[in-house]
Amino acid sequence: MPVRVQTSDFDAGREIAALRAGDARVGAVASFIGVVRDVNDAVDVNALTLEHYPGMTEKALEDIVADARARFEIYDALVIHRVGELKPTDQIVLVVVTAAHRGEAFEACRFLMDYLKTKAPFWKKERTAEGDRWVEARTSDDDAAARWDAAR
């Protein structure tokens, strides 16, 4: 399974080793880990709750991985996204890409994250000293995703 949505934590080293195990074509592995910060928009964040839309979220992630495979010369890709309650320093998301060369691996990894941020149904709610608040979508994320379409 190239995509997983789970409440439990992940071991990036183990996932990377498993993704490229036995594949001697692989010359480059790029990975990205998103982590919960303790501050957002100048307000202290004590905890984060991640919600998803079971079914659609997995399908959307699979579509994004398929899109990456069509755009870049990569061998394999993995996306793990956590849901539920997380605390500052917890891992949120892991993206791993294997390819023959670093250029395609880096590009595909960045593409996967840019698309995930704007197209995969996840929502963050922050717990702050001033109360709970839903995180608002950022136009900078839309711009980052749109760049890939403009580049085509």
């Binding site: 704007t118 996840f122 963050k124």
Partner: peptide, 10 residues
């Protein structure tokens, strides 16, 4: 039919 705000994952 699902209604939801713009997504904020990642």
């Amino acid at each position: 039919v699902a209604l939801f705000p713009p997504v904020t994952g990642g």
